[in-house]
Computed example of a mutant assay.
Amino acid sequence: MLARVTLLAVSVLLVSGCKLELPILGGSNISGPLQVENVVFERAGGPQCPGATETTPENVRCANLRLTYPKVLTAGSPQAAAAINQFIQEQVLEYSDPQGKAPTTPDEFSSMFVNDYNEVPDAMGVWEMERKVEVSFASDHLLTLNFSESGYTGGAHPFSGQRYFVLDLDSGKHLALNALLAPNYEAELNKVGERAFRKERNLPEAASLEEAGFWFANNSFKVNTNFGVLKDSLVFNFNAYEVAPYAMGPTEFTVSYDDIKAFIPEAGLLAAVAR
């Protein structure tokens, strides 16, 4: 009789000691005190996983989990490095069992994921989940992380999405837009952001967002909180289903610092990047 949870011997845990140099958009976007090593965790489990005896493409029943994320070795301070590592772990391990318990390690996460698969009596084929955290940008004081997730756990469509996080390299604190821009920035940022959004979507200036298939309250564009700091711009991302149907996919666009320079405080954290 097969065990309820089978973690295969072919599963691997890889830890490499190389510095990450993985900017998401454009050129070399990493400088300053940040040093990281890349961690890759993979587990597969279930009644009939690839590589197990008598497994065929027709009878495969398996759940695969893959996590890739940076471990911060050096930041603006040891305390900041610890805080950023904790933040990364919280994003990577966001999950819970039926009782609401959250995993504290990748191993616990993989066990919960496989358990959930095994609890579905008619689950055939493969469940997959891949989570990845990459460094999009790092400067003397700011860090942008890109968290992406994709996979399939049944249903009509696979799932995917990504989110940016901006952190203070000196404290490890997660920063919102109002920590980087001057008060009353919203109207101008929304105006500039809408132009960039329309350009990305090939929408004329006078075209109705609602008639084009987008879901903005009162048919009025507004940036979201899914943003990152890059070398010469802020990047924003709307995931699938967020402001448009699944078939229209996600929308990512950038807002140049030159277009919002009046709202970048001279003594603020963003000023050194935007110069």
Rank of each mutant, 00 (worst) to 15 (best):
L143G: 07
L143C: 11
T144W: 06
T144A: 11
F147T: 02
S148Q: 15
S148C: 01
E149C: 14
S150C: 05
S150P: 00
S150N: 13
S150Q: 15
S150W: 09
G151L: 06
G151K: 09
Y152K: 07
T153W: 01
T153K: 13
G154C: 01
G154E: 09
G154P: 05
G154Q: 10
G155C: 15
A156W: 00
A156C: 04
A156F: 04
H157E: 12
H157N: 14
P158W: 08
P158S: 14
P158A: 15
F159P: 12
F159G: 13
F159K: 11
S160N: 10
S160W: 05
S160F: 08
G161D: 07
Q162L: 09
Q162T: 01
R163A: 09
R163W: 04
R163Y: 00
Y164L: 07
Y164R: 09
Y164A: 10
Y164H: 05
Y164W: 06
F165H: 13
V166F: 01
V166S: 12
V166Q: 09
L167M: 10
L167F: 04
L169C: 00
S171C: 06
G172T: 03
G172V: 04
G172F: 06
K173Y: 01
K173N: 02
H174F: 02
L175F: 00
A176K: 10
L177I: 10
N178Q: 12
N178V: 03
N178G: 09
A179G: 05
A179F: 06
A179N: 11
L180K: 10
L180D: 01
A182E: 15
P183H: 01
P183I: 02
P183F: 00
N184F: 04
Y185V: 05
Y185S: 11
Y185T: 02
Y185K: 07
Y185F: 15
E186W: 10
L189E: 04
L189W: 03
L189G: 12
L189K: 11
L189Q: 03
N190L: 13
N190D: 15
N190P: 06
N190T: 06
K191G: 08
K191H: 11
K191T: 14
K191A: 10
K191Q: 12
V192S: 09
G193M: 07
G193R: 08
G193Q: 01
E194F: 08
E194G: 10
R195A: 14
A196W: 02
F197T: 05
F197E: 03
F197N: 12
F197Y: 11
F197W: 04
R198D: 08
R198V: 01
K199M: 11
E200P: 14
E200W: 00
R201H: 12
R201Y: 03
R201V: 03
N202T: 07
L203P: 04
L203H: 08
P204V: 05
E205Y: 01
E205M: 01
A206G: 05
A206M: 08
A206D: 13
A207L: 12
A207Q: 15
A207P: 08
A207F: 03
S208I: 05
S208C: 04
L209T: 09
L209P: 08
L209N: 05
E210S: 10
E210W: 02
E210F: 04
E211F: 05
G213H: 13
G213L: 14
F214T: 03
F214N: 03
F214Y: 15
F214C: 08
F214P: 12
W215A: 12
F216N: 07
F216Q: 13
F216R: 10
